[in-house]
């Protein structure tokens, strides 16, 4: 089966979630990847390690800003010209906004939140996470072309492939596609992105105030983790909105989620229940979060976290 994978880059590097998408594609067929905007050939060739044979590069500088309409246009063109049967992308803020348009352009069935490899013995069936992680649905995609937006950790990362060849991919882009103007873009520098992170350290109202986030950040730093928070914490502006995890925020599926001073309301759990392992630290032994946890510590965050951080530093040294 011929597969096209959309690669997103971040500061000139292929995002880890895109590398997972390539690995996913390689598990079902022969992968050509497509990437947009400025990025080095060397970086693109490294997509081979994850299983891409070839990378198409639409290098037009106008594509450096991730604009939805031109991205949908370029990726659709690549989907058509490669004759690929399946387009795979990691779920992301940009990919989510783009794939619906591609689905309509090409009449391709679209499945989001895909959590496993497809079953192809009778039809093309994918397992999707639904009801914000509370259930799954097995869906048959009935069109010739198919689009899958995969969840983090849907597949083991492949890293042993040979370098990919890189080819220019030029598409004539109508000015009308650039009607929206990005006037500014703010991004936390150097932080691990929450949806990309293998480990997330998340804090709730139990931390009492934004001035106390140092203990969360220290622990995250030791673990190379991203920081997250509960909804009230972002509502009160203790933390930026993009860190808000849960039903109405970011849904994460890291290998390890550490929740500190979060009670475990069902709406919060909805955003974290597909994590592989959950650690809960809460001073209230009755906190509902313990029921959803793999490991729990009943204790005061302000005492436990610094100790845990020291112990981790020792163990990881």
């Amino acid at each position: 089966m011929s597969v096209l994978v959309f690669i997103e880059t971040e500061d000139g590097k292929i995002k880890k979630s895109s590398r997972e998408a390539i690995s996913y594609g390689a598990a079902i067929g022969e992968v050509t990847a497509i990437t947009l905007g400025s990025v080095s050939n060397e970086e693109l060739a490294s997509a081979g390690a994850n299983g891409a044979t070839k990378v198409l590069h639409a290098a037009d500088e106008k594509l450096n800003a991730g604009l939805i309409m031109p991205y949908a246009e370029v990726i659709s063109k690549a989907f058509e010209s490669t004759g690929a049967e399946v387009l795979v992308t990691a779920k992301s803020s940009l990919a989510d906004a783009v794939v619906g348009r591609i689905s309509v352009k090409l009449g391709a069935a679209l499945a989001s939140n895909v959590s496993e490899l497809p079953k192809t013995d009778s039809g093309f069936v994918v397992k999707q996470s639904i009801y914000t992680g509370k259930a799954f649905v097995n869906t048959t995609l009935t069109t010739d072309k198919k689009i899958l937006a995969i969840k983090k950790n849907a597949i083991e990362l492949k890293t042993d492939g040979a370098a990919a060849s890189v080819e220019a991919f030029d598409v004539a882009l109508d000015d009308a596609l650039f009607g929206a103007k990005i006037t500014s873009s703010e991004k936390a520098e150097g932080d691990v992105l929450l949806p990309e992170a293998d480990i997330v350290v998340s804090g709730g109202r139990g931390l009492k105030g934004p001035e106390n986030w140092g203990i969360i950040e220290d622990l995250a730093k030791t673990l190379g983790a991203a920081t997250g928070c509960s909804k009230p914490v972002s509502d009160m502006d203790w933390r930026p909105h993009h860190e808000h995890v849960g039903q109405t925020g970011v849904k994460v599926s890291p290998s390890l989620y550490i929740a500190v001073g979060i009670s475990g309301a069902i709406q919060h759990l909805a955003g974290v229940n597909s994590s592989k392992f959950i650690v809960v630290i809460n001073k209230d032994e009755e906190a509902p979060f313990f029921k959803a946890a793999d490991y729990g510590i009943v204790g005061d965050a302000f005492e436990v976290l610094p100790k845990l951080n020291e112990a981790l530093k020792k163990a990881l040294a």
Partner: peptide, 9 residues
């Protein structure tokens, strides 16, 4: 909202 931040358009 974009990952890790926001953009204005």
């Amino acid at each position: 909202e974009i990952e890790g931040g926001k953009e204005k358009l």
